[in-house]
Amino acid sequence: AGSTTLRAVGKLQVRLATKTEPKKLEKYLQKLSALPMTADILAETGIRKTVKRLRKHQHVGDFARDLAARWKKLVLVD
C-alpha cells in the first residue's frame, strides 16, 4: 500500500501545484485526506509543504490548514 499511496500523493502533488480552479483543488485535497498517510510519505514527498502553501487560499484555505495540522500531528507521533 505504501508505494501505491506514494504514487497517488505524487500525482496529486503535481496537480495541486499546477491547477488553480477551486473545485479541482478541493477535490485533490479531499483525495489526499482519504489516503493512508505516514510520516515517511510526508517526508519523502514534501506534500505537507505543498498543502501548506494553500492555507491562505480563499476557497480551500481552511481545508488545507486542517489537513496540514493533522499531518503535523502524525509526524510528531512517529
Score class of each variant (00 low, 15 high):
residue 66 D to L: 05
residue 41 I to V: 07
residue 26 E to Q: 09
residue 13 Q to N: 02
residue 38 T to D: 09
residue 21 E to Y: 04
residue 29 L to R: 01
residue 39 A to Y: 08
residue 59 H to R: 09
residue 75 V to I: 12
residue 42 L to C: 05
residue 20 T to M: 12
residue 73 K to M: 07
residue 36 P to I: 09
residue 68 A to Y: 12
residue 65 R to Y: 02
residue 2 G to V: 10
residue 27 K to S: 13
residue 28 Y to L: 10
residue 37 M to Q: 01
residue 5 T to S: 05
residue 50 T to P: 03
residue 31 K to N: 10
residue 65 R to E: 08
residue 72 K to V: 01
residue 19 K to G: 15
residue 75 V to N: 04
residue 9 V to A: 07
residue 20 T to K: 04
residue 21 E to N: 13
residue 64 A to L: 05
residue 34 A to R: 06
residue 43 A to Q: 10
residue 66 D to E: 11
residue 30 Q to D: 06
residue 51 V to H: 00
residue 31 K to W: 09
residue 78 D to W: 07
residue 60 V to D: 00
residue 9 V to L: 07
residue 8 A to C: 06
residue 37 M to V: 10
residue 48 R to A: 15
residue 59 H to A: 11
residue 62 D to I: 00
residue 56 K to W: 13
residue 46 G to N: 10
residue 16 L to F: 06
residue 70 R to Y: 03
residue 25 L to P: 01
residue 21 E to R: 05
residue 67 L to N: 00
residue 23 K to W: 13
residue 23 K to R: 09
residue 55 R to E: 15
residue 33 S to F: 09
residue 17 A to E: 15
residue 2 G to H: 13
residue 13 Q to C: 05
residue 2 G to F: 10
residue 37 M to W: 01
residue 39 A to S: 08
residue 54 L to Q: 02
residue 11 K to A: 14
residue 53 R to I: 05
residue 71 W to Q: 02
residue 78 D to L: 07
residue 23 K to L: 11
residue 21 E to H: 12
residue 13 Q to T: 05
residue 62 D to M: 02
residue 30 Q to G: 04
residue 2 G to C: 11
residue 31 K to D: 13
residue 28 Y to K: 00
residue 52 K to I: 14
residue 63 F to E: 04
residue 60 V to E: 01
residue 26 E to P: 01
residue 73 K to T: 09
residue 58 Q to I: 14
residue 61 G to T: 03
residue 27 K to H: 12
residue 26 E to F: 13
residue 11 K to D: 15
residue 1 A to M: 08
residue 8 A to Y: 12
residue 38 T to I: 03
residue 31 K to M: 13
residue 6 L to W: 06
residue 26 E to H: 06
residue 30 Q to Y: 07
residue 53 R to K: 13
residue 65 R to T: 12
residue 7 R to T: 14
residue 68 A to E: 06
residue 31 K to Y: 13
residue 18 T to L: 10
residue 25 L to Y: 01
residue 73 K to C: 09
residue 25 L to N: 00
residue 24 K to M: 14
residue 62 D to A: 06
residue 71 W to I: 10
residue 12 L to F: 08
residue 55 R to D: 09
residue 8 A to K: 05
residue 33 S to Y: 09
residue 55 R to P: 01
residue 2 G to L: 08
residue 29 L to P: 04
residue 50 T to L: 12
residue 49 K to V: 12
residue 44 E to Y: 04
residue 77 V to T: 12
residue 53 R to S: 14
residue 25 L to I: 11
residue 69 A to W: 04
residue 6 L to Y: 05
residue 37 M to C: 02
residue 66 D to S: 07
residue 55 R to A: 15
residue 7 R to I: 14
residue 33 S to L: 03
residue 48 R to H: 14
residue 66 D to T: 08
residue 65 R to K: 09
residue 16 L to T: 01
residue 76 L to D: 12
residue 34 A to L: 07
residue 49 K to C: 13
residue 64 A to P: 00
residue 40 D to G: 11
residue 45 T to V: 00
residue 26 E to S: 06
residue 4 T to E: 15
residue 61 G to A: 05
residue 51 V to P: 02
residue 31 K to I: 14
residue 16 L to R: 00
residue 25 L to D: 01
residue 41 I to Y: 00
residue 36 P to G: 02
residue 34 A to E: 14
residue 75 V to W: 11
residue 27 K to P: 03
residue 65 R to C: 09
residue 49 K to W: 10
residue 46 G to C: 04
residue 56 K to S: 14
residue 24 K to V: 10
residue 31 K to T: 11
residue 40 D to F: 15
residue 21 E to Q: 11
residue 18 T to Y: 10
residue 19 K to Y: 15
residue 34 A to C: 12
residue 29 L to D: 02
residue 32 L to N: 00
residue 28 Y to C: 08
residue 23 K to C: 13
residue 38 T to H: 02
residue 41 I to Q: 05
residue 77 V to A: 12
residue 47 I to M: 00
residue 39 A to C: 09
residue 71 W to R: 02
residue 39 A to H: 07
residue 13 Q to L: 09
residue 34 A to N: 12
residue 22 P to E: 06
residue 59 H to D: 11
residue 73 K to P: 08
residue 63 F to P: 02
residue 52 K to V: 09
residue 36 P to F: 03
residue 61 G to E: 03
residue 13 Q to K: 09
residue 38 T to P: 02
residue 27 K to C: 11
residue 45 T to W: 04
residue 42 L to H: 01
residue 51 V to L: 08
residue 53 R to D: 15
residue 22 P to H: 10
residue 34 A to G: 08
residue 66 D to G: 07
residue 25 L to G: 02
residue 70 R to P: 00
residue 66 D to H: 07
residue 51 V to R: 00
residue 14 V to C: 06
residue 69 A to M: 10
residue 76 L to R: 10
residue 6 L to E: 13
residue 6 L to S: 09
residue 16 L to A: 01
residue 33 S to Q: 08
residue 68 A to N: 05
residue 38 T to M: 02
residue 70 R to T: 07
residue 4 T to M: 09
residue 78 D to Y: 06
residue 54 L to F: 11
residue 14 V to P: 09
residue 53 R to F: 07
residue 8 A to I: 14
residue 38 T to C: 01
